[in-house]
Nucleic acid binder design. Structure first.
Lengths: 358, 358
DNA sequence: TAATTTCTGATTTACGTACATCAAGAATTC
DNA sequence: GAATTCTTGATGTACGTAAATCAGAAATTA
């Protein structure tokens, strides 16, 4: 059997109360006694049964998650994972309130942050819009002592405790590397489609992409489709008509529906390499239908769970191990697609079955 | 607060004992009463606190893991993850005994399985060698009612309960797709390096690779290096000398160290596309040093944790949700490498710094 | 030495569930 | 109607830890 607090007490020759004082860093233990107890803990290899401890503490962590509304598939997948976490509080004693705000609306996010502060949660996670009033609100969150994690889209490192998302510059570089190899020729003409250059993620991806490609290809000026399907489709159709020499398209935002529609309607062979971001039902179908060659993905489920872990750690005053919370950049081809039920690029699910942690 | 069993009792107007009988499917409850209780459970949205339940049951799951010895970096990484799981029994109440057997030795695996049976664990996970006596031993495990999971390397579906590993045919196809796009030309000459065609994983990968490439490239006869560094290096050096027209190499086994050494010593430009398997310190360094273009990887940590989850589910008589336990095929370029501490392709750690093959 | 203050022990209750026991009521059988 | 089964209630203990209380013992200060 695993050693318990009783075993520590016996080993150290002290009472249970003293062991408890040492374990929970309560005052009233002489330094010498404390060291005896700690030695006993090390000697018998005691590890606290967190399940029992949490049960006894009956501690709950009220967290607030702030997500954008809108029909962005990735964001809806993110919301689904948050709701999954809400639906299974059993495992981790987390009580999440979910706040949905209008998309691309800095003022709304700022208001939501201020509202969250007044509820005094144990932590806040937010899909940030990189705007001055959001930064101000984030600072107010920190000033009130509430841990703050940015999700997917970051603010500056100075106004949040942690960022649960991918390194978007590295993602752009990865896209660039793939693109360079997929087009397989020097001085090819490459087009880039973004949502908006006002969003930090998109800027970072573009920078990384250019850095990986600059010396071997010609990258056309960025097209900004505002992640709007109709507008994006027009942009791409126009692009394909005007530049028959285009061999690669990099879609670094969420405008994939318009891109796919334009490629589908295109009457000549599509550019040799098309790379997009985020595995959604649309991009999955496009991969399977050979309209897209590769999809870079961030696992929304991982991001949500990571955000929760970090918030809990911060709430407990334990420093989170940043290296363990890094979110990977997944690359999907049609050949290594995960099963539909298994990831974000899936068909909508009926309810919320519990999922395996990773 | 979350509803508890007491709330169910109050809602249904029955005693705690009756609620307990319903919850734990104990006999002695009239159908009508049972339905009242179940209705109450649904009405107040009760979810059993598994932490408390496991605490009360003080149930432990003794599992046996059987892994091959040897200096294969991937296997040592796998072992490290098993030891990690052993070192933190707090979370999941599993008690793992780890058995290390000689590599590529079916008889040894079979003996280990039989020895494990006599210990009556709640489940067994094994890195299988696809040999008749292993299959026989696996059937004996199943006959004795102990759940059996194959890890990384499978047996037939008929002689284990679950396979915790990647779809190696899909992995081969993925490698083929990447290869086709990386070499970027028709009728290119591609070489394949394997460990041994006697191993199921390697055969599957080769099949998938050929299926993805057959109509566009010329794939040379497979080289078998037995995952031995020196032998592999000679094979590759010889290959490069005899076939100056080779534009791609696919290393589908664990012979990466010899491959990398040969590429390093090669005095002419290396083939345009080199794709290998498993992110280890060696392949990571080769990726960073531009000796390899892409590495397909299976996350050993995920596999170990998945195996444990499945074994627990089987031990509890709960059918594991296969779709949730699928292991992804990761693709790594130098641009999306995870941090060294974060994954298997890490720098050697003080505890067990394996060096050698792969 | 007396009066404090600081430390430690002993004990109890609690968290939410599992599980066992005993008694008593209800329904069934003969 | 008696004997038997089936069903339910009441109660207590246990899991491993947290947290509080109160009573002494030890160390410190006056």
């Amino acid at each position: 059997m695993r050693p318990t607090v009783h075993d520590i007490a016996a080993e150290a020759g002290v009472s249970l109360a003293t062991v408890d004082r040492v374990l929970n860093r309560r005052p009233g233990v002489k330094a010498a006694t404390r060291m005896r107890v700690e030695a006993a803990i090390a000697a018998i290899g005691f590890v606290r049964d967190m399940a029992a401890a949490n049960l006894a503490k009956s501690r709950v962590y009220p967290f607030t998650f702030i997500l954008p509304a809108g029909d962005n598939s990735f964001m809806r997948g993110l919301e689904r994972h948050v709701r999954d976490a809400m639906a299974r509080p059993s495992a981790d004693r987390v009580a999440i309130s979910l706040v949905i705000v209008p998309p691309f609306d800095g003022a709304a996010v700022a208001r939501a942050l201020d509202a969250a502060i007044s509820n005094e949660p144990a932590g806040i996670a937010v899909v940030a819009v990189d705007a001055p009033d959001v930064v101000d609100a984030a600072r107010r969150v920190q000033a009130s002592g509430i841990p703050l994690v940015t999700l997917v889209s970051d603010l500056g490192p100075s106004c949040r405790d942690h960022f649960a998302g991918i390194d978007n510059h590295a993602a752009g570089r990865t896209a660039g590397s793939l693109m360079r190899r997929f087009v397989g020729q020097e001085s090819a003409t490459i087009a880039v489609l973004a949502g908006s250059m006002l969003v930090r993620d998109h800027r970072d991806r573009l920078d990384g992409f250019r850095a990986a490609l600059s010396d071997s290809c010609r990258v056309l000026p960025v097209l900004e489709g505002q992640d709007d399907p109709a507008a994006t489709e027009r942009l791409i159709a126009d692009l394909l008509a005007r530049h028959p020499d285009i061999v690669g398209i990099y879609s670094l935002g969420a405008g994939n529906r318009g891109l796919i529609a334009a490629l589908q309607r295109h009457d000549r062979p599509r550019p040799r390499a098309v790379i997009a971001h985020e595995l959604t039902p649309h991009t999955r179908a496009a991969l399977e239908g050979d309209l897209i060659d590769a999809v870079l993905n961030q696992d929304a489920g991982h991001e949500v769970r990571s955000a929760i872990r970090v918030l809990k750690a911060k709430a407990d005053g334990i420093p989170a191990v940043e290296a363990q919370e890094r979110i990977r950049i997944d690359i999907f081809l049609k050949d290594n697609l995960p099963f539909a039920d298994d990831a974000d690029g899936m068909s909508p699910r009926p309810s919320s079955a519990p999922r395996g942690a990773n």
